[in-house]
Write a protein that binds this DNA or RNA. Structure first.
Lengths: 212, 212
DNA sequence: TCCTAAATCAACAACACTGTTGACTAGAAT
DNA sequence: ATTCTAGTCAACAGTGTTGTTGATTTAGGA
């Protein structure tokens, strides 16, 4: 690619929004083809910015990537710390990845790359939550929160990749969430919770019987 | 990197094993940093082969990548079609990814890239198996095999990433498999199977109670 | 034993990306 | 109004990658 094709319209000066545009383009690109494949050239092109401008905001390619991952971790932690009943929580968790596919993908790419397995803050938050859950009186004894956490994150992440490719409209996606949530809830309800103490969830599952 | 550093020792002529060495190096590299990041230069270097030789065996970079993925799909399907009781099957499935980390990683990378969501043959094999399972009389009615398949593949895949980073010796890994298998089995036993018809699995779970 | 097809390799051109530099200019400060 | 800081941009050198070509060597058949 030539350094600049043509269209020598100078960008209106606005550092903050320029920075945000660069970050957004980088995030999208990293999610699409992986952090490794993110290129300053393409980021700048997508953001409608000169490549040199990107280097003004982020000293190196790696610094830009790190900035993206930082913002990502913050957002993720925020999502994981929102409190609500188990059932809704699952729905929100799934919906989040369906509505923000790039977050699921970024998380996956990060797990593939990072030495310890997950954006550490977010992960600790999640495991801690599950530890509380496992020790409550309405769940079965002998649950391994760390392993359960792996299941409850890994399965939705993997599933969300499929949702991205196989759904076209919002209705599709809502149905996909319901379908997957139902299986997850069944497993949780009978595998880790004490169903007799969660009658509303039992009836929710019985009610949605016809779903397919 | 210079085209060739030095060490002008000519490789002993042996096309078959050369090809295999190239494939192995490519597979390792693709699994490590993703298919996109695999370069012929590095593959050739790792395989101890001249870059030109690699081009002799595989016309283009993409052809090499495709060859790797083809072999991967075959191996995966073979693994998925091996028959055995549910419990053992889970153990084998987990052990496979722990013993061959590059397969888990390749599968994930492939899902991230492929438009339809999975190495199609292997996936169909797996879902078909689960369909049979879901219709048997010793499992609960109303199971969604496709969704269950996403869970039963996704969770182990991501878990295995963690295992790779957090275990050092074979004993560690055996313990990790046992720990995760226990959670998966509990979920399955109570969430999709009829426990009263799977007494041996129930007692296996009760027995391993002390596991941590 | 000799010959030849094929395997191995080094060097080349074309290209993309990285990080740097210096020019240009818009907006803030004086 | 003038100055000056800093946002924006084009061009440069350096490096790594791709795919190609032609030289060199060796395994194995005639």
């Amino acid at each position: 690619m030539a350094d600049q094709i043509s269209a020598a319209v100078r960008r209106r000066r606005d550092p903050a929004s320029t920075r945000e545009a660069i970050l957004a383009a980088a995030r999208a690109l990293m999610a699409e083809r992986g952090p490794e494949a993110m290129t300053i050239s393409e980021v700048a092109h997508r953001a409608g910015v000169n490549r040199g401008t990107a280097y003004q905001h982020f000293r190196t390619r790696d610094e830009l990537a790190a900035a993206v991952m930082h913002g990502f971790g913050q957002r993720l932690t925020a999502m994981l710390t929102e409190q609500s009943p188990v059932g809704e929580r699952i729905d929100r968790f799934l919906a989040f990845f369906v509505e923000h596919p790039e977050f699921a993908r970024l998380w996956i790419y990060d797990m593939l790359a990072s030495p310890d397995g997950a954006p550490s803050d977010s992960w600790r938050v999640f495991v801690t939550t599950l530890e509380g859950f496992a020790q409550a009186s309405d769940t079965q004894p002998g649950i391994d929160p760390e392993m359960l956490a792996r299941i409850l994150v890994g399965a939705p992440l993997f599933w969300s990749l499929w949702v991205q490719k196989s759904t076209v409209d919002d209705d599709d996606r809502r149905r996909a969430v319901a379908r997957f949530a139902r299986e997850i809830k069944r497993l949780l309800l009978f595998g880790v919770m004490k169903p007799e103490q969660w009658t509303s969830m039992v009836s929710e599952l019985d009610g949605g019987e016809g779903a397919q």
